[in-house]
């Protein structure tokens, strides 16, 4: 812009460092101890944090399992809810559409924990608190709008002419969905699923409120380390969290892309 090529390169390098620096520090901290003042970096290689993590005492296995099961279940349910909803919103106009939209996207504006605080009594009555099922149900609310939005966008660009064309060529409803609609929607579905998983992985307060502390997810076991200032364990768990999150995202993307290896998705 106002700057020469050299200063742009410098700026980019600067940004690169800013983003990656915390990760490097995080890695350092989980593998090294001896960050005594005033050393800039911790000194001694020490993997005790990691051995503790995997020792079985830390509750890591339980937490990962819970996080994954809850996230995937909630996402799966929401997908079933959101697909027809997105279709209806995108392809039809009807009375009260604005209200319905406001309702379905409301959890983005009004924090879900408010509803969960109110709902807690009822959930206790239904014996859903302190259970994984209860937490999964609670996770439906914050994740739903994030799944709905990309789907909605995808559906709006799905021209009904393609559908009509397919019909004229003799395709049945199921065939039309599989061969015409689905490839077009796949990017939106992918985006929505990943967002939904991400949001569920990151939930803390809702899991705590409904799970009562009995259902441990990754954020729940990670938080205490951050508040206590235990940098090593905090780093270690953060890396674990990041690794789990990123791998799940990559795997989901890879699976769905591979499934559609022979078909091409339509760029949005």
């Amino acid at each position: 812009m106002f700057k020469s090529h050299k200063s742009w390169a410098l700026l980019q390098l600067f940004l690169f460092i800013i983003i990656l620096f915390p990760f490097i520090m995080m890695l350092l901290f989980s593998f090294f101890t001896g960050w005594s003042w005033p050393h800039l970096f911790p000194q001694t290689l020490n993997v005790s944090a990691w051995s503790y993590l995997f020792s079985g005492n830390a509750g890591v296995q339980e937490a990962i399992t819970n996080s994954l099961v809850i996230a995937f279940s909630a996402t799966a349910v929401n997908l079933l809810l959101a697909l027809p909803a997105a279709h209806a919103l995108a392809q039809h106009t009807f009375a009260g559409k604005k209200i319905v939209e406001a309702l379905l996207f409301a959890p983005l504006i009004i924090p879900p924990f408010v509803a969960m605080m109110g709902l807690q009594i009822t959930l206790i009555q239904w014996n859903l608190t302190d259970t994984r099922l209860g937490v999964t149900i609670a996770h439906l609310v914050p994740t739903f709008p994030y799944l709905l939005r990309p789907l909605y966008t995808s559906f709006t660009t799905l021209a009904s002419e393609w559908n009509a064309q397919a019909r004229l060529l003799g395709a049945s409803r199921l065939q039309r969905f599989w061969y015409v609609s689905l490839p077009h929607l796949m990017p939106g579905i992918l985006a929505g699923v990943m967002l939904s998983l991400l949001v569920s992985f990151s939930q803390y307060l809702i899991t705590l409120l409904i799970g009562g502390g009995a259902i441990k997810t990754l954020p729940l076991i990670l938080f205490p380390y951050i508040t206590s200032g235990d940098l090593r364990m905090g780093a270690t768990f953060s890396i674990l969290f990041t690794a789990v999150t990123l791998s799940i995202l990559f795997i989901v993307e890879w699976c769905l892309k591979r499934f559609y290896k022979h078909r091409h998705t339509v760029p949005m």
């Binding site: 079933l80 809810l81 959101a82 027809p84 909803a85 209806a88 919103l89 319905v100 309702l103 379905l104 409301a106 959890p107 879900p112 408010v114 509803a115 969960m116 605080m117 109110g118 709902l119 009822t122 149900i137 609670a138 439906l140 609310v141 739903f144 709905l148």
Partner: peptide
């Protein structure tokens, strides 16, 4: 829209 609205209604609005 019924399934989605039901879920939001029960879990969010009722909450």
């Amino acid at each position: 829209l019924l399934p989605a609205i039901t879920m939001i209604f029960v879990l969010f609005v009722m909450g």
